[in-house]
């Protein structure tokens, strides 16, 4: 039981971490990243990318140019752009929003529902529910949570992530975001495989 819980926790934490990384970096960002990189093998390569010589300002500028604008977004972080030929607020976006509503989640920030940070945090929410169910030994709910994670990844995040990753790697100026994107892609792929194997 303990091992099971631990591995679920780690998945949850990873998703949460990834999600946080796609917000505009704040003062303590570098420090937090360093901590995570130190304690989680998978993210260890990030440590090298956030050395002391890297200014926070530089990170912020890179983040903005990639994901915010104001002109052309170099790497739009929205699912519908990749799934619907460059469209924003498309039908896939509506579908993502429906997913959130079904889980009783209200969006409290001002952005499109299929922003990568949100989709990642959504998986995180599902995993936490899975965690609760595991503690309660509620096998029906556990299975349902796993099915939902799989389904959501298959129909949304995992579908557009490769193209997104490619964009970031092509346009990012800092190693951090390049590496982050790469790791995000690998992580999701691995996670999909794990879910498919029914673990």
């Amino acid at each position: 039981m303990e091992d099971v819980l631990a591995s679920i926790c780690q998945r949850a934490d990873s998703y949460k971490f990834l999600s946080e990384c796609y917000y505009l970096p704040e003062e303590d960002f570098k420090q937090k990243v360093a901590e995570v990189a130190n304690s989680n093998q998978f993210f260890s390569e990030l440590e090298a990318c956030i050395g002391a010589e890297l200014e926070l300002e530089t990170l912020k500028v890179d983040f903005t140019q990639l994901f915010v604008g104001p002109f052309k977004l170099l790497a739009p972080p929205y699912g519908s752009v990749y799934l619907e030929d460059g469209q924003l607020m498309g039908e896939s976006t509506i579908d993502v929003n429906d997913w959130y509503e079904k889980e009783g989640l209200d969006i409290v920030i001002s952005d499109a529902p299929d922003h990568i940070a949100m989709e990642l945090e959504f998986i995180y929410c599902l995993i936490v529910k899975q965690l609760e169910a595991t503690k309660d030994a509620d096998s029906e709910t556990i299975q349902s949570c796993i099915d939902k994670q799989k389904s959501f990844l298959q129909t949304h995040l995992a579908r557009w992530l490769p193209a997104f990753v490619e964009n970031v790697q092509k346009h990012a100026k800092t190693d951090f975001y390049k590496k982050l994107a790469q790791l995000t892609g690998v992580f999701i792929q691995k996670d999909m495989d794990t879910l498919s194997l029914g673990a």
């Binding site: 039981m1 303990e2 819980l5 631990a6 926790c9 780690q10 934490d13 990873s14 949460k16 971490f17 999600s19 946080e20 917000y23 937090k32 901590e35 995570v36 304690s39 989680n40 959130y100 009783g104 989640l105 209200d106 969006i107 409290v108 920030i109 952005d111 922003h115 940070a117 949100m118 945090e121 959504f122 929410c125 936490v128």
Partner: peptide, 22 residues
Amino acid sequence: ATAAVAALSTVFQPTLKAFAQT
């Protein structure tokens, strides 16, 4: 019941950032 949880979960708030539960 698990120690493995400790490190990661103290770095970022487990509370939700983008969502609120209704």
